[in-house]
Design a binder for these strands. Structure first.
Lengths: 140, 140
DNA sequence: CGGGATCCCGACGGATACTG
DNA sequence: CAGTATCCGTCGGGATCCCG
């Protein structure tokens, strides 16, 4: 656990945290960071929903991606899938305890995103504008 | 922000929380949720680093993806890029204030991931095993 | 040293059609 | 209703070569 040679300018944290922690973080993010998982988990945070309820709620998701996303979330233990074999069939999705717990840090990130979206967008505009003027200067 | 209220079925959930919040969340996640951004931001959380330092530290990243990732993070205002035109040239990357603030909810998610990785892996094993026996039963 | 330019492949993800 | 199956375009991302 020897820290590598790192220049520590600001608040220093142990590099151990980074190296050791980022494997599972990437695992979580590769599931949650895809196009739809956060939306699905967020909606299910309000309670159990049926397949078509989710489909209508999310608006833009294809049934294929909804199925794929739900399967992935089910595999990782975030949601449960309950089939009621009536006619027509009925399938309910709900968060597990694990899913509810995930919702906590996820909502923190979400609130940060909402709070800071304008700063990000401003940075993007600044970057793009600067890039445009640089490109123009190149052609001159 | 309303607390998460559970409703039974059918009724529309509060559109504000999900609909309004998830656009910026997806924007943040589409940047942060890619394969390398979290690693880069985490490493820069320990202080300024040079390009080749990051390249060597991250182990597995190609120079193309490191460049792409850093450009994206710079565009969104999370990192600064400082060029020192010496020979050989020197380029330093560091987190902005925005980047440091992002690190907070990000680390929360990271700690959650570390704390719960075994539960996720266990769920995956359970799911895969159950799937395998089902597939076997199908063939019988 | 720190990239930019190019080629290429596989995975992600959308549209459509069909099934239990 | 809740999927599965198929086709197909897009693009993330790796490998390689080159440049200032």
């Amino acid at each position: 656990m020897k820290p590598a040679h790192h220049h520590v300018t600001g608040s220093a944290s142990d590099p151990f945290v980074v190296t050791e922690a980022c494997r599972p973080v990437n695992q979580i993010l590769s599931r949650i960071g895809d196009k739809w998982s956060v939306l699905v988990v967020s909606y299910l945070g309000n309670g159990t929903m049926r397949f078509s309820e989710l489909r209508r709620a999310i608006d833009g998701i294809s049934q294929k991606m909804l199925t794929t996303t739900l399967r992935g979330l089910e595999r990782d233990g975030y949601v449960t899938r309950t089939v009621t074999p009536t006619i027509p069939p009925r399938v309910d999705y709900a968060l597990t305890d694990l899913g509810c717990e995930l919702l906590v840090p996820l909502r923190a990130l979400g609130e940060w995103a909402v709070a800071n979206r304008e700063r990000v967008e401003a940075a993007q505009r600044r970057f793009d504008a600067e890039n445009a003027t640089l490109a123009a200067a190149q052609r001159a």
